[in-house]
Amino acid sequence: MTDSDNQQKWPALPATLSNIAVTKNSGKYESVSSNYFKVGHPRLVFMAENDEQVSHVVEYAGNVQRFVGHQIPFSVRSGGHGITNYSVNDGGIIIDLSQMNQVNILDEAKGLVKVQAGAVWGDVADKISKADLVLSSGDFGDTGVGGLATSGGLGLLVRKQGLTTDQILGATVITADGKKRNVNKEENSDLFWAIRGGGSQVGIVTEFIFQADKVEPAKSGQRVPIGLQKLSYNVFDLSHFLFAWHSWITTTTEDMSSLLMLTKNDSNSSIISVQATNIWCGEKTDSCEKYFTNALNIAKVEKQDESNLSYHTLV
């Protein structure tokens, strides 16, 4: 059976969705049908703009499955970084949340922030930094909020703040029946537990309430100051290096986070190139300087760079 034959068996689009549907004949199709890791070939992409449209898409997907008599692929896409490739598919439906991207500070003193799932973390950092607030969130500014926040969220300040899921106080979820539900510790608590690590398996999260942390400005007035150290090591004995790095990071306070990227050396396969990104949350102190100095002794440093910047600039 051809792809066009299958297409004819799908029910007609309801009026509520026709204006947000992207088909293979649309000029937008290529830019919204794939993610960073996989080229997708969905039948339809819906560019949802509000919760009601998300509900209608979920209901339509259910109607399609009943109409054709079998399951069809259904994906949720926010920023398009997902390495699992769940955010794209072939022959099915993608609901794209990138138009739902508002970031609002509800209570600056309490650090309460409302973020729609289609926002990207760079925009979140820009908004909340102006209020001296910070949320640990991934390591790229164009990563989408929805996918990362529901799947864990190993961020640049992970030792200071924990996972992004740890900062979720509440959310709005569209479940498989198309209903909109508010979830938190008291209301729909089972869903609240499930979305913090369950991805989109139990529903589509369209909005989050996060608990952000306050970071005092630097004496220079810089908002959400960060001390950044980037080091490049060439390592022959990776096991020895990792033990040494672990011994170093465990001597630091939780204000210091450290991320490692390991790659094989192009010119010598016995050498592992290690890129270390060491991040100090807050204005640099004597302790930070000591930790940065000690990091130089983990292994032979081929290249190093230190800077002071804002969290927004870092993201």
Rank of each mutant, 00 (worst) to 15 (best):
D3N: 07
A12W: 10
P14W: 13
S18M: 12
K24H: 10
Y29C: 05
S31C: 00
S33D: 08
Y36D: 12
Y36I: 12
Y36C: 13
K38H: 14
K38M: 14
L44I: 10
F46A: 04
S55R: 06
V58Y: 07
Y60M: 07
G62I: 09
G62C: 09
Q65K: 09
R66D: 13
F67H: 04
H70K: 15
H70C: 06
I72F: 03
V76K: 06
V76W: 05
H81C: 07
G82N: 13
T84W: 02
N85A: 12
V88F: 12
V88W: 14
G91E: 13
I94N: 09
I95A: 08
L97H: 12
Q99Y: 14
N101F: 06
Q102D: 04
N104H: 02
D107I: 09
K110L: 05
Q116H: 02
A117M: 07
A119I: 10
W121E: 03
W121I: 02
V124D: 04
V124S: 08
I128R: 02
D132W: 03
G138N: 06
D142C: 13
T143I: 14
T143K: 11
G144P: 15
G147C: 00
G155Q: 02
L156A: 02
K160Y: 10
Q161Y: 14
T164H: 12
T164N: 12
T165W: 06
D166Q: 13
D166H: 14
D166P: 11
Q167V: 10
L169R: 12
G170T: 00
G170H: 08
A171E: 03
K180C: 06
R181W: 10
V183H: 01
L191T: 04
W193M: 05
A194L: 13
R196H: 10
G199C: 01
S200A: 04
Q201Y: 10
D213A: 04
E216Y: 12
P217T: 01
A218N: 00
K219C: 11
G221H: 04
R223P: 03
V224A: 00
P225Y: 11
L228N: 08
S232E: 03
D237M: 05
L238H: 06
S239K: 05
H240V: 01
F241G: 01
A244C: 09
T252S: 14
T253M: 05
M261D: 12
S273V: 13
V274S: 03
I279M: 02
G282N: 00
S287H: 15
C288G: 05
E289F: 09
E289C: 07
Y291S: 10
N294L: 10
I298F: 06
A299H: 08
E302V: 01
E302T: 03
E306V: 08
N308C: 09
L309N: 05
L309T: 14
H312M: 05
T313Q: 04
L314I: 08
